[in-house]
Structure formats: C-alpha cells, structure tokens
Amino acid sequence: MREMAVRVFAAEFNSSDYELREGEEKSSVYVITPLGAKINRLMLMGVLTEIESRDTEGGKLFTAQVTDPTGTFRVSAGQYQEAASRALQSISAPAFVAVVGKARTYSPEEGTVYVSVRAEAIAQVTQEQRDNWVCETCSETAKRISAMKAAFELSPPVAESIARMGVPKRLAEGATLAAQHYKNVDLSNYRGMVVEALRSIPGVEDATVEIAPARPETPQLPVTNGTELTEVEEKLLIIIGELDRSTRGAEWDEIMRTAMGRQIPEEQVSLAVEGLLDKGMVYEPVLGRMKRI
C-alpha cells in the first residue's frame, strides 16, 4: 500500500517521540504524534529559511529549515533523494516551499528522540498554495483533536469504539496509540495552535470579527433514554407484579379490573401495557397474561 501524505504542523510533529514499526519484517515505520497522526509520509509547506550542505560518508547531505505558523521542520535530502537535493540547490532562502517526505527519527541518547523529514520532493510554491496547506492542516488537526478527546474519555481507549463515533479507522488507531503513549496531552493548547495558524491566513480574522456570533447555547432537551416509564406505566407495572401470584403471569382481565378500580381509564391501560411490552418491562408468557421481566 502506498502511504498517504499526512498534513501536520511542525509543533505537533516535533513533539513526537514515539516510533512504531509495523508490517512484514517491521518494514513500515511510523511516527505517532501526540494527536494520533500516524505518519510514514507527510506533506508540509512553509518558509524555507536556511539551507546547509555537508559532506558525509554517504555523499553530500542537504539540510533545510522550513517554518510554518507553529514551528520549524528539519528537512534533509541525501544522495538517494536526487530530485529533492537538486531542488534545494536551486532555491535560495527565503522562499515558500512545499515538501513531501518520509518521517525519520533519531535518538542521540537514551530517552531523547528527534524527528525530521527525509525529503522526496521539494518545490517552490506560492503564498496562496501555502495558505491552502495551512487551511487543510488546520482541518486535519481539528479532526485529530476530536479523536484524541474521544480516546482520553475512554478507559482504556479502544480503536473500534472511537471508529464507531465516525472517526476514520486510521485516525482511530493512531489516537488509541497516542493516548496510551502520551499521558498528558494538553488538547486546548493544540486548539489554540489551530486558531493561531488560521489567524495567519490573510483576511480570516477581519472576516470573522464581523460575523463571529456569541457562542450559541445548546438547548437542553429533555433526556429520555427510551426506557423511562410514564406514570401510568409505573402503576401498571406494580399492578402486574401484585397480580402475578401464580408466577404464570397476571391475567389481563384482572389487570384491567384492578387498574380501573384505581381510576386508570381503560384506554390508558391498554396503552401503558403496550408501552411496557415495548420497553421490555413485561412480556406475555401466554395469551392474555402479563408477566414482569
């Protein structure tokens, strides 16, 4: 399967210290971010601020810094990333660039993990293209925040349950892994990051100030869980219980008589018994007899 290119901000990506290997011979490597993005490949856009080249044993290695509204990506391209290396040689900082590449981790010492991007392709882009990427990334980040919220509310988090809430399967898995690995993720911090990133798109704040409504109050609807009994149903349940002396169930005629004796109109009795049957509170072991479940 070809790996998709995840949209992720530098702040989220750089906070990752969790590498996961999956598949045959553990050949698929993923970085799991604190918001549950499962990243093998990513696409980023930002301002190229620095390019360096170094001679290494494996040939020339280019490293670059790409800044988005939240932080800075470390991007590298070596001899096997020929196209990306060539592109880096031809672009001079500062410039808007887009990068597609693989997530890499390196651990200089026990307990420290750094992430970076091994570029597959780099190209100059326009500011509009960059803004579009910011917008897409905000949208994807917001989805991850909701998924994480769900994952933290479940104990333990289960991917199937999160997926059932309408979260895509891949994200549900990622959120589950992240919730287990990263104990303290400040989701409101990431929400603030999304707001700041959107603010960087020209015109967004101005347009919003005019139309930003007061937070609408969610109307409190009366909660019925579908099993709540009406007053008459409760009375009848008691009657049925009382009359069921033989354990074969209370006889219909007797129920009717007793209920009417207690000032419950006939049609309400039928209605309430129907209700009790529907709510699974009583059943009819034989025709004309009612029994509590």
Binding site: C138, V195, L198, G203, V204, E205
Partner: peptide, 11 residues
C-alpha cells in the same frame, strides 16, 4: 478564505 473562516469560528 471561506474555508478558513469557517474553521476559525469552529475552533
């Protein structure tokens, strides 16, 4: 811009 405004309000 439109998409960003909607996202901004939600956020």
């Amino acid at each position: 811009k439109q998409r960003a405004v909607v996202l901004f309000q939600e956020a």
